[in-house]
Design a protein around this nucleic acid. Structure first.
Lengths: 353, 353
DNA sequence: TTGAAAGCGCTAACAG
DNA sequence: CTGTTAGCGCTTTCAA
């Protein structure tokens, strides 16, 4: 159990077990090639010496690092940050199960004034063969780096659809935001709400448009009006509050009785606007957020939750397919989110019209 | 700019530049050994071929992976999670600046019923020489793994004091929680508050005791009474709310006018208790949280903020010292947090007694 | 200042 | 089924 200064090598194990180095290598990589008794002897020597194959040597020989690169994006919105943390954990765990590790890197500081290099950090890792593949997550504003990576023939899987490039042929996994918002909309509809407002982001983000589309489609399918029930603002509590206030401050029979929001941040703003008017979320007016962030959990806010554990597993599967040269069965995979129902959308006891 | 299927090697560069392989190696690792014109020629070849040294080969030769291992803990409390995300980002960035990358790993699933192996995941990485060192972060409940790592002579730096082992001789960096709470206490005192309550965790956590001690010492120094102004509960909104309510529901001249809390979660609970009584945080009663989490930022909650960027930088410095064999200048380093003042502790216009 | 030789620890390919 | 040979790409001697 003592730990030697210099870790044991294959040769040490071979000597200890009285076999050749190659046999030890086989014992590890192709155990079925060995006779059971030889295997047992080698195993015993491995255990006795506490041997683990030297990572660098193996990598050099097999040209595989069993490392997946993941770039940490500088820092997104509050809510997205929290989601990324959950995703990272899931990814590490999913990778572990197939014998991979996650290598974190950053794109370096964004140069003053200019946009950060979309490929910053990727290139070096690629050329030094430090990682086998990448997981690309920051596709929320289009995919500047996926095309670059594809051009370099770098193996990668994206978390996020190639919104701006339907012809992209790389594997990806994404969460169906529209379906999530539809879930939220139908949920409050089931509670009796009919004037269901959408509190969304300013146009221009793919994700934002997708989520809004989910609301709009759900409203259509439910035969509900959407006119005058919509706001688009920056992802900010104050802005969200103001927008919600503006929607509320109309004749009472036209005011929304439910808010479905593009983010938990906006939902918090809506909550505030309600409180200012003496309305109680969940009793008087329903509020639903998006991302099931810490705020949602702490404030009892109903929220759409992305299945990030499943996303990570799917990404790792796509990654292993990719690296084993298999023809990827599906180009892209869209996963459905779920709804975490909390007090902010408590069941209503009376129908509303 | 085209990327070749097989990355360029040292030999390719040497041929292109018309020098020996060794000269190219020197150009990269000891540029001052070369004549300027040779260096320039080699540099040009490197750029032309887009060469980066093969990571595995270099690692095999130099016995250094330039990788730092960081174990992702299963999942802590809400608030700590968010902090860890910020720390991870900072660590990745600090590592990048000294040419290191961060390798994420997990301890594996905790076996049903039994506590997770404190050294889970560490051993393999160590013996396979996959990482040069570790950053150990989950020291919040004592340091089960630091002693094990020390015994194995694994280089590591801890984020967190060796609470339970004053004789530990490994380098560490920590945030002075007591000083943070003192800051908070003095802040509300400066606002005119005199009956300042502590809403803390149940005894048993080192960090919790430390934070509480900060409140107690500050109160003593300010000549304020602490009797009947203290509660200890689990880190949970409901529990925090109940405890705050109990503290508030006494004769008015004995009720606290300020709450200093061990976490943002508890602070949210306190806020709720205030709202139930028609009291407005920041106007009637001050509330201060801890960790400057998303909730604090979104709700306008004054909170103690840990200097995680500085922690990461200090850890990386300690790490490089350690790996370069320098005698670590200081065994441990304690960093002071700051206070993010927000609406929940707005300045009071009238003195309170 | 530059070049030649050796070898880090491992596994792929073949021979026995 | 086991052993031998060769070499992945790099850096560390040591010579020129």
């Amino acid at each position: 159990m003592e730990s030697p200064r210099a870790p044991a090598t294959l040769a040490d194990v071979a000597e200890q077990a009285g076999v050749s180095r190659q046999t030890v290598s086989n014992a590890i990589n192709n155990p079925d090639l060995l006779r059971p008794d030889t295997l047992a002897r080698v195993q015993a020597a491995i255990d006795a010496l506490g041997y683990s194959p030297n990572h660098a040597a193996r990598q050099l020989r097999t040209r595989s690092s069993r490392l997946v690169g993941l770039r940490l994006t500088p820092s997104q919105e509050f809510t997205a940050n929290m989601a990324m943390d959950r995703f990272n954990r899931s990814l590490v765990e999913a990778c572990r199960e197939v014998g991979y590790h996650v290598l974190l890197f950053s794109g370096g500081p964004a140069e003053e004034g200019q946009r950060p290099d979309p490929l910053g950090g990727y290139d070096d890792l690629l050329r030094s063969t430090a990682v086998d593949a990448f997981v690309v997550t920051d596709t929320y504003l289009g995919n500047p780096q996926t095309s670059g990576l594809a051009r370099r023939r770098a193996p990668f899987v994206a978390f996020g659809r190639p919104w701006d490039d339907p012809g992209a042929r790389h594997p990806w996994v994404d969460v169906d935001g529209a379906a999530g918002v539809r879930l939220a909309t139908e949920h409050v509809h089931g509670l009796g709400h009919r004037r269901i407002a959408w509190l969304g982001w300013e146009p221009g983000s793919w994700i934002g448009e997708d989520r809004r589309a989910g609301w709009h489609a759900a409203m259509d399918d439910l035969g509900l009006m959407t006119a005058g029930l919509e706001a688009a603002v920056a992802d900010d509590v104050l802005e969200g509050g103001r927008a919600a206030a503006a929607l509320l401050d109309v004749e009472e029979h036209r005011a929304p009785t439910a808010f479905v929001c593009a983010s938990d941040t906006l939902a918090v703003g809506a909550r505030g606007a309600l409180a200012d008017r003496g309305l109680v979320p969940g009793r008087d007016v329903a509020v639903v957020g998006f991302d099931d962030s810490q705020v949602a959990q702490v404030l009892g806010l109903t929220s759409v939750r992305q299945p990030l554990e499943a996303v990570a597993v799917a990404i790792v599967r796509a990654l292993t397919d990719l690296l084993s040269g298999e023809p990827s069965p599906a180009e892209g995979l869209l996963l459905a989110p779920s709804l975490e129902v909390r007090a902010s959308s408590g069941s209503s006891d009376s129908e509303r019209a």
